[in-house]
Design a protein around this nucleic acid. Structure first.
Length: 589
RNA sequence: GCGCCCGUAGCUCAGUUGGAUAGAGCGCAUGACUACGAAUCAUGAGGUCGGAGGUUCGACUCCUUCCGGGCGCGCCA
């Protein structure tokens, strides 16, 4: 089967609708057929509201259209093999119930979730995609919003990749410009302080304690050239600091970036590349400028060059070259994004922090001006804004100020909360919601966290295999001929739900709503727990002894569930342990 | 002032691009281990979906307006 059950049904319904339209003499072709899930399992496996949507086009009552589609499905040779019933409910919902045999058609010889996903995806020719995320300034440790963006971006990449989409993940390092100068200067002042100077840090310097720590690392690794020794005590340090800063800045950035990379690594975040802004200057920036200028997207005014972004929906035009000739950050960012185009990516996804939303219009404007978003090209450029995380400590907000060095770092977070818990927490919420993270509650509740519930279900299945003395990895789930054992006691419900994984992945590849995968994992684990709690009928070890055929069916259900849970967890960068250690458990329960 | 995001159960959040009786976790109440792990299962209490209008077969979802919270509106990055 080269498609999910849902897509197959959607195709069939589309055929049927088009046939009806032709019969009625309407020159109408349906677009995407929406197929959802009924609110309750006993209503069916799939539900579609198409009949209601088509009511206007066909000028007929929804139920009448639904009836025609029902006829079509039941008389279609391929579809009728899968379907056991089509009910029309409420105002015109089509509720489709599949046959149990549909399960054994999917779970055939050598079946595994992983092989199945490999078969299903890619569903169509997929565009080369680049996802840029985190991209924090290399002037300090990563903060908690970066942690959220990292979890979101990395999970998205894993999911897109699983959907067969060629994905490249990238971190844009802003190692150029004014802030780099300020960073170097900050090191210089701290260095002077070490040399016995009374210093008064300029207000715009980075004040965090980490500046001192990184400075120590630099000093431990290399000696400072004598000509950079601080001037006489009491004299003004400003011009000296400027010069010495040029020495410290690149060294400091290298170490800060390394430290960020190590934070990301411990959060299981993978980047294919780190792209340094400094490599764009000057050649790529100049080339981008020339390109936009030749396309007529720029104009000169009062000695500066402006991008006419208001033509493309921005509130106003934006400066790209200052009147002193230096390019702005926007100009460099345009150059950077044009490299994405040059590198062959036709789908560009950026994940930005909450303070950048005002920036979307101008960058999109630039990409439009550059011809990337030409309607005929089918390219896309999407920006996801990850909203802020309010860090609370016992219900009170933790005040954050990066400049003053008072802020919660990603490291603080991961030191206190296990990575599995953090990553699950971050993707369970939609990216656009502001969310509160109470460290105190997160710490105490992490013991009762939903992520452990999912992992527990997974570990339990492996425990069953250990009890049964069957090797999980070489076991091959196979349901052909075992249909009679697949009904009731949550058996079919669990299997159907589990086999929806490709549909989840397919949806997320389109809408980026990753919280639905977290939800799916939780529901799958819940169904397994219910299945497992049917101790009379679903005791696998016992059934294997009493009725081997039925035992194999139950074992296959469990195996497929474990595979799907492991696969889903890994898509969120969460581990799927085969045993849970008691240390992780809540004590007071 | 303008723009973007958010407002759903006591708390933290889902709600499938307008669909069926608005859901989950935590917390609370009650019950279930001599059977593959009780980190579990079963049952229950808890909602004027921020307020008010509008659009239609149908609105938590779309539009208008108001209220409340957050963030942006540099020739900074």
């Amino acid at each position: 089967m080269k498609t999910s059950l849902r897509s197959l049904l959607a195709e069939k319904i589309a055929e049927i609708v088009n046939a009806i339209a032709a019969r009625e003499g309407l020159g109408y072709q349906v677009g995407r057929i929406r197929i959802d899930y009924p609110p309750e399992y006993n209503l069916g496996h799939y539900a579609s509201p198409v009949a209601m949507e088509l009511s206007k086009v066909f000028r007929k009552p929804p139920r009448q259209i639904a009836e025609a589609i029902r006829e079509g499905l039941l008389t279609d040779k391929q579809a009728s093999q899968l379907i056991s019933a089509v009910d029309i409910a409420g105002p015109g919902f089509l509720n489709i119930t599949l046959q149990v045999a549909a399960l054994s058609m999917v779970v055939r010889q050598k079946f595994s979730i992983s092989r199945w996903l490999d078969m299903v995806f890619p569903i169509r020719q997929e565009p080369k995609t680049i996802v840029e995320f985190v991209s924090a300034n290399p002037t300090g440790p990563l903060n908690i919003v970066s942690a959220r963006a990292a979890a979101v971006g990395d999970s998205l990449c894993r999911i897109l990749r699983r959907a067969g989409i060629p994905v490249h993940s990238e971190y844009y390092v802003n190692d150029y410009g004014n802030q780099v100068r300020l960073l170097g200067m900050s090191f210089a002042y701290r260095y002077a302080e070490l040399q016995g100077h009374e210093i008064c840090l300029p207000e715009n310097a980075y004040q965090g304690e980490y500046i001192r720590e990184v400075l120590q690392q630099i000093l431990a690794d290399e000696s400072i050239p004598p000509e950079l020794a601080p001037p006489e005590r009491g004299s003004d340090l400003a011009s000296w600091a400027e010069k010495a800063g040029e020495f410290f800045a690149p060294r400091g950035i290298a170490r800060l970036v390394a430290s960020q990379k190590s934070d990301l690594q411990s959060f299981r975040i993978h980047f294919d590349t780190f792209f340094h802004e400094s490599t764009l200057h000057p050649a790529a920036v100049e080339a981008a400028f020339e390109k936009l200028k030749n396309l007529g997207a720029l104009y000169e005014q009062e000695g500066a060059w402006f991008l006419a972004s208001s033509r493309y929906g921005d509130d106003k035009d934006r400066v790209v070259i200052r009147s002193d000739g230096r390019p702005t950050y926007l100009m460099a960012d345009i150059a950077y994004h044009l490299t994405k185009v040059d590198r062959g990516f036709s789908r560009i996804v950026d994940i930005w922090g909450p303070d950048h939303h005002g920036y979307i219009a101008r960058l999109k404007g630039a990409m439009q001006a550059a011809g990337f978003l030409d309607a005929r090209k089918q390219n896309s450029f999407e920006v996801l804004i990850v909203q802020q995380v309010n860090l609370l400590e016992e219900g009170k907000p933790v005040v954050m100020s990066k400049r003053l060095g008072r802020f919660q770092t990603m490291r603080d977070l991961t030191n206190r909360i296990p990575v599995d818990v953090c990553r699950y927490f971050f993707v369970t919420r939609g990216v656009s919601t502001h969310l509160d993270f109470d460290l105190e509650i997160a710490t105490t509740q992490s013991n009762r966290n939903p992520v452990y519930y999912i992992q527990y279900a997974h570990a339990r299945i492996h425990s069953i295999f250990r009890q049964a003395g069957i090797d999980f990895d070489s076991f091959e789930a196979e349901l052909s001929g075992l249909e009679e054992y697949l009904s009731g006691d949550y058996r079919d419900e669990l299997l159907y739900f589990t086999l929806r994984l490709p549909e989840e992945i397919e949806d997320i590849a389109r809408n980026y709503e990753m919280q639905s995968l977290a939800e799916w994992l939780h529901q799958t684990a819940t169904l397994f727990s219910k299945f497992y709690a049917q101790k009379e009928r679903n005791n696998i070890v016992k059934t294997l002894k009493e009725n081997p055929a039925e035992g194999r069916a139950l074992l296959a259900i469990a195996a497929v569930t474990a595979q799907a849970l492991a696969e889903g967890l890994s898509l969120l960068g969460i581990e799927a342990p085969r045993e849970m250690t008691r240390d992780d458990a809540g004590e007071g329960s």
